[in-house]
């Protein structure tokens, strides 16, 4: 059954892994150059002087980064649409299930091998692409240290979870809807909703954030911010951490309004210990050290969902198709 699955799947696999090879060549061709550029401009910028300019100049070379990041965002959806949704639906649509289920392999084995084989190929492809991309973009990631919010879902292991989930989702849509195109559309819609929903509402609650109240201590790279004269907040606190909120509060713990800035130029001067001494910073955040915990949790959750969907497909093919 594995050999037959490969016989059916190899054309699709060739397209996908061919594209992967092209991307790999592009990354290998440009990666060492990027690393060299980083080493010569940013890494020893303090020697030459202007670090900010060097960083900005380096970060502006990220066009390919944006494009490949988008590929990595789209990859799971593509796998779900083009590998998952047609896997069973196309058989049902062309009525070829009446041919293959009459061979000497039980339907359970048929669906298990198909799910397992193509599912593993999905995980492998996503893993490879993410690994290559994470390696290639590491110089940028050292400049742009905001790993939690902007690039979290394009790096390391979470793309594997997304991809396997999208694949299982596609298969499930296919077995229930029984027609390829509607199954593809459903896969895209549900997958996008699941990803956005998870990022918005689930990911922030995976681990309880730290809540730290400490004397206000401004370091370089931190500024104040206030929207429409609202409460005063800090920008740039805890580099590399995922900051949920960074409020400036007074001794009583109440937020300080932005109008506070106007009184006696207390904050602008940065030279008024008495003034600043009244203030505290209240940070709610996930420290940078939790990055891998978030990666593992999120991947495990999506893989778990994929497993549930695969079980559903197995049951549906066995019990409901016929």
């Amino acid at each position: 059954m594995i050999r037959f699955t490969w016989l059916q799947f190899r054309a699709q696999a060739a397209v996908a892994f061919g594209a992967l090879a092209v991307i790999a060549i592009a990354l290998v061709a440009t990666g060492p150059h990027l690393a060299h550029l980083y080493a010569t401009t940013v890494a020893d910028c303090s020697v030459h002087g202007d670090c900010a300019a060097a960083t900005t100049a380096f970060a502006s070379k990220d066009r390919l980064l944006q494009d490949l990041g988008n590929v990595l965002i789209a990859l799971p959806a593509l796998v779900g649409i083009f590998w998952g949704a047609p896997l069973v639906a196309r058989e049902l649509e062309a009525r070829t299930e009446r041919l293959v289920w009459a061979q000497g392999v039980t339907r359970s084995r048929w669906v298990l091998v198909k799910l397992g084989f193509v599912g593993l190929a999905s995980a492998g492809g996503a893993g490879l692409l993410s690994l290559m991309f994470t390696w290639w973009s590491s110089p940028f990631d050292r400049v742009n240290i905001d790993r939690f919010t902007s690039v979290f879902d394009q790096r390391d292991i979470v793309p594997i979870g997304y991809t396997v989930f999208a694949f299982a989702l596609g298969v499930a849509a296919g077995v229930v809807i029984r027609r390829t195109l509607p199954a593809m559309a459903t896969t895209l819609g549900v997958f996008a909703a699941a990803r956005v929903g998870f990022t918005q509402w689930a990911r922030p609650h995976l681990i309880t954030p730290l809540r730290v109240l400490s004397p206000l201590h401004l370091t370089s790279g931190m500024t104040y911010n206030s929207v429409n004269n609202g409460p005063l907040t800090l920008v740039g606190a805890k580099p590399g951490a995922w900051v949920y909120s960074a409020a400036v509060v007074n001794k009583a713990g109440h937020p300080v309004a932005s109008t506070f800035l106007d009184h006696g130029a207390c904050l602008q001067s940065r030279a008024a210990p008495a003034c600043i001494g009244q203030l505290r910073e209240l940070l709610v955040y996930q420290p940078a050290s939790r990055y891998w915990a978030f990666q593992w949790y999120e991947m495990a959750i999506f893989l778990g969902l994929a497993l549930v969907l695969a079980g559903f497909c197995f049951w549906w093919v066995r019990e409901r198709l016929g």
């Binding site: 062309a94 009525r95 009446r98 041919l99 009459a102």
Partner: peptide
């Protein structure tokens, strides 16, 4: 078993 209309894989 040969099903009605003899289904086969068009791409194989």
């Amino acid at each position: 078993f040969v099903a009605q209309d003899a289904p086969v894989y068009a791409g194989l």
